[in-house]
Design a protein around this nucleic acid. Structure first.
Lengths: 220, 220, 220, 220
DNA sequence: CATGAATGAGTATTCATTCAT
DNA sequence: TATGAATGAATACTCATTCAT
C-alpha cells in the first residue's frame, strides 16, 4: 500500500464527472431516438447499467437532464468550430473553415438536430439554448465584426453590414442542417458546402444584371 | 309532403366542412401553444364550445387531428405563394414574389413554424409533410427549372444549376423562418427580405475578389 | 284501389312486429360475435339499413334489446322442444325427443349459447332468463312429473325421484351445450346423443357391481 | 461491511410472490362481482391498500391480470382434485373422490364459475383455459383410461368407451356447477352428489326395460 | 451512495343515449 | 316517425419522482 493512500474507499474525484458524461452521451441518443416524452428514464438507466435512482442523483429532473444533454452537444459544436477557425489566419479562410466545421459537426451527429427540435417542441417557455448561446457571446460577436471589417477594408467583401451577413449566413446554415435532417434526402457534405459558398459568395445575378438593377434602384 | 324531403333530420351539407375548419383553426393555436402531448382534447372542445365526442367524430384520433391541422396550414402557404407568383410575369419578379409571400406567411402565422417543429418532434417515423409536399410536386419543380433557365438564358442569372439554387434558397428560407421564430429576435419582414435578396443575388464578394478567386481556382 | 283501402299512408300493423324481429335476429349474431359491451349499436343499425335512433325507438335501452334477443331465442328453443315432444306418444320416446330437439337446437344455433353466457356475465343481478323460464313454468313441471310417474309405474324407470332425474338430466344437457361450444371440439350430434342416452339410461355399473353395492349400502 | 451485502435496498425474494397472490385473490372476487369490464383497477388497488401503479407493475395489462386470476383458480381446482384422488386406491373410489372434490371446490368458490363465464364472454378469441388445461394434459388422460380399463376388466363397469364416459361425466359436472351457480337454487352438495352418482352409475332404466330394449336394438 | 419498489397524476377514446329537425 | 349530430361519463395505462433500505 503506498504511503499516500488513505484508508477506506478512495475518493475518485473524476468519477462523478465521468459518469455524468456517460449519462449525457446515452441520453442524447435516447432523446433523439424517442423524443423527449417517450424517452424512458428506466431505459436510460438500463442502458447505462445503473439504477434509475442514480440517474436522478446526477440530474434532479428529466428536464435538467435534457438541458444538460443539449448543452453538452452545443459546447462540442462550439469547440469544433472554434478549433477550425483557429487553424487558419486569413479572414475569408476562417469563414470557410467555420462553415465547413459547422456542417461537418451536424453531418457526424445528426441526432443533435433532433435535440434542438425537441428542445423547442417541449420547452417553448425557455429560450432555445442554441440562440441563447449565440446572443450571450459578445466576444464572438466582436470577432465576427472584425473579420467582416477586415474583408471589407481589404476590398474583398462588398460593404455588407456585418449583422446582415451574419444573420443571412446563420439562417442559411441553420436551415441547411434542419433540411438535411428532415428531408431525408442524402446530400454530400462537400457538394453542399460548395453550392452554398458559390451562391453566398458570388450571388445569383450576373454582373450585367447587377449593373442594370443598380441603375434602376439608384437612378442618379 | 315535399317530393325531395327525406324523413329525418335534414343534413346541412356545409356544416361538416365549416365545423372541420373551425376545429382545425383552434387546434392549430392549441398545438402551437402547448405542444402536441400537452394539447388537451378537452380544452380544444371547450374553446370550440362543443363536446369532446364531437371533436372525435371529425378526427378519429388526436394524431389525425394534428396531421389535418398542419396539412391545412401548408395548403394555405402553398396557396399564398402560388397566388403571389401568378400576379407577376417577369421571372425574377416571380422569385421575389414567392420569397416575399413565403416570409410574409410565416410572419403572420408564426404558430405554423411551431407545428412543423412538433410534427418532426412527435412523428419522426413519418416524413415531414412539409418536405413530402415539396418532393411530390413535379409540376412546381418543372416551373422552377423553367424560370431558372430563362434567367440564365437572358443573361440575368449566372449559370448556377437549378437544383443548387433551389436547395440553397430553400434552406435559407427554411432557416430564416425557424430562426425568426426561435431566436425571439424581432426582425422586420422588409429589412429581412432586403438583406436576404442582397446577399443571395449579389453575393458577398467584391468583383475584384471574385476575379482573383477565379484566377486561383481555374488558373488557365 | 280497393273499397276498404283508407286514404293516406296505410298503416301496416305488422310492420312493427316484423321490424322488431329483424332487429332481434341481427342483434343475436352481433351480440354473439362481439360480446355485449363490444356490440356497437351503430353497427347494428348499419347492418339493418336503419338509423340508430330507430333502433332505440324499438328498444329503449341496449339492455332491453339484449333481453329481448335472448328471450326470443329461448322461446324458439321452447317451441322446438315442445313440438318434438308432441310428435310422439310413448313417454320414453318423449324424453328422447326432447333431448334430441334440445341438442339439435343448439347445434344449429350455437350463438345462443354465447348469448346465455353473456347474459350471465353482464347482468348478474338479473336471474338468468334460461332458469327463470324453467322455474316459472309449473305446467311443464307437472307434465314432467307425469311422464316420470308413468315410466316408474310401468316398471320402465327405476323409482328415481322426478326432481332428481330432471336436475341431473338438465345439468347434463346444459353442460353438454356449453362444453360443445367452448371446447371447440367438434362432436357429431348423433354420436353425442347416443353416448348420453347410453349412460343416462343404462348407467355405468354392471349388474353384478350394482348388486354388490346394494348389499353394502343396505346390508339388511 | 458484510461480504454479501450489495449496495442499495435489499430485495425480499418472497415479497413478489406474496403480493402477486394477494392481488390475484382480491382480483378474483372483484372480477366475479363486477364482471371484467366493470372491474375497476383503481378499486382493486384501493381494496389491496396499494397503488394502481403497483398493480400494473405485477400485471402489465388488465387482461393478463384476469388470465392469471383464472389460471390460479384452475390450478387450485386441479390440485384439490388430484389430492382427493390420491387419497384412495380403489378405482371406483377415485372417481367418487374426484367428482366430490370437483363439486366441493366450486361449492366453496362459486366465484370461479363466474370467472369461467367471464373468460368466455370477454375473450372469445382465446380458447377457454379450462378446456385448454384438459386438452393439454395427456398424462391425466392416460390415468383416466387406466381406471376405466381396470373397472371394465374387473367386471364393475359396463364396457363403455372411456372417452364417452369421460365426456358425459365431464359435461354433467360442468353443467352442474354452472347450473348451481346460475339457477340461484340452493342445492346441498351431498344430495346433489348422491343424485348424480345414482343416475350415472345405475342409470334410469329398470333391468326389465333394459332387457326389453336390448331385444329391440339387437333382435338376435 | 446506490437501489428499485412504490406512487399517482394525467388523458385519449368509446359509445349508449338524447333530441332538434 | 325517422334521422344522425351531439353529448359526456367512464377508465386503463405510463412514467417521472420519491424514499426506505
Amino acid at each position: 500500500m503506498s504511503a499516500t493512500r488513505k484508508p477506506g474507499r478512495p475518493v475518485d474525484p473524476d468519477l462523478h464527472e465521468r459518469r455524468r458524461k456517460q449519462i449525457l452521451d446515452v441520453a442524447a441518443s435516447l432523446f433523439a431516438e424517442n423524443g423527449y416524452a417517450n424517452a424512458d428514464t428506466q431505459k436510460l438507466a438500463d442502458e447505462l447499467g445503473i439504477s434509475k435512482g442514480t440517474v436522478f442523483r446526477y440530474f434532479p429532473t428529466k428536464r435538467e437532464l435534457f438541458a444538460a444533454t443539449i448543452e453538452r452537444a452545443l459546447e462540442q459544436l462550439q469547440h469544433d468550430v472554434d478549433a477550425a477557425v483557429d487553424l487558419v489566419d486569413d479572414p475569408l479562410a476562417k469563414i470557410f473553415a467555420a462553415i465547413t466545421a459547422y456542417l461537418r459537426y451536424f453531418d457526424r451527429r445528426p441526432e443533435v438536430v433532433e435535440l434542438m427540435i425537441l428542445e423547442r417542441a417541449e420547452f417553448k417557455d425557455r429560450k432555445s439554448s442554441y440562440f441563447d448561446r449565440h446572443d450571450k457571446c459578445d466576444e464572438k460577436d466582436e470577432r465576427w465584426r472584425l473579420i467582416m471589417a477586415t474583408l471589407v477594408a481589404d476590398g474583398r467583401f462588398r460593404a455588407v453590414p456585418a449583422e446582415r451577413a451574419r444573420s443571412v449566413l446563420g439562417d442559411l446554415l441553420y436551415g441547411t442542417i434542419f433540411s438535411n435532417h428532415m428531408s431525408g434526402r442524402p446530400r454530400s457534405l462537400e457538394e453542399q458546402a460548395e453550392g452554398l459558398f458559390d451562391i453566398i459568395f458570388n450571388g445569383l445575378l450576373t454582373e450585367a444584371e447587377r449593373a442594370r438593377r443598380a441603375d434602376v434602384d439608384q437612378p442618379e
